[in-house]
């Protein structure tokens, strides 16, 4: 349903020279799967997401998103920072992102699943980073997206909060099946959440390895996760 084929994406840095960010990234996403993209920092992961989202159109190649039959065709994103409107309440932030056809939909269930029902009248400045991230997740899921794109949504949180949010995301994925594409540099996170892990090389990036995980998320043990992490590490060392 999502066809990504990026060839040679460069970008200009401050002094005018061009830097190769992506050499070649080509993959397809199957409907209702959770894919993680991992790679060293600065390898062009965020750049890749920006091209998929249409925020960066200066690249050669193509990105095609095909609406499935019965799908909503909507794309939602959770950015690295929550990117909430500081002057609108939590609920208004979520509602503003929803299309007209969903405006009458109650949000209570979603807010309860994410544990933000009690703060829905708060302004974002009154929230902790962990809560703000949950609101960003709520905003994305409220759209009933067909494709969900997550850019390191749990970065710079303390371990306990990040782990808690990971479990929340896992629960949401089960309750509201969506095709998800997440970028992260945390291998354990990827091995916990994903059906499939795409390992990128250093910049300019290409795909080193495409690792499917056969055990479903809810039945994965710590040994399973450790095994996947070890496999990815060995790929990255070559």
């Amino acid at each position: 349903m999502l066809d990504v084929d990026i060839q040679n994406k460069t970008y200009k840095i401050a002094d005018g020279t061009r830097l190769d960010a992506i050499e070649k990234i080509k993959f397809k996403l199957q409907s209702q799967t959770f894919t993680c993209v991992v790679g060293p920092s600065g390898c062009g992961k965020t750049t890749m997401l920006r091209t998929i989202l249409g925020l960066d159109t200066d690249f050669s190649g193509s990105v095609n998103f095909n609406k499935q039959t019965g799908g909503t065709g909507r794309v939602a994103t959770v950015f690295q920072e929550p990117r909430l409107l500081p002057w609108r309440s939590v609920e208004e932030n979520v509602r503003l992102a929803m299309p007209k056809s969903l405006q009458d939909q109650p949000l209570m269930n979603l807010f309860n699943e994410l544990g933000i029902e009690h703060v829905k009248q708060f302004f974002p400045s009154e929230l902790s980073l962990g809560l703000a991230r949950r609101v960003a997740l709520a905003r994305a899921y409220a759209l009933e997206p067909e494709l969900l794109i997550l850019d390191e949504p749990f970065v710079s949180l303390d371990d306990a909060t990040a782990e808690h949010l990971r479990q929340l995301l896992l629960k949401l994925c089960q309750l509201r099946p969506t095709t998800s594409l997440m970028v992260t540099h945390n291998l354990v996170e990827a091995a916990t959440l994903a059906d499939r892990i795409i390992v990128l090389s250093k910049r300019p990036s290409f795909i080193l390895e495409d690792v499917p995980i056969d055990i479903i998320q809810t039945e994965r043990t710590e040994t399973d996760i450790a095994k996947v992490v070890a496999q990815i590490k060995s790929v990255q060392e070559i």
């Binding site: 249409g54 939602a76 950015f79 990117r83 503003l96 992102a97």
Partner: peptide
Amino acid sequence: SELNEMAKVYRF
């Protein structure tokens, strides 16, 4: 510009 991008992605 970050909020503009958010608005663009969410098709405001």
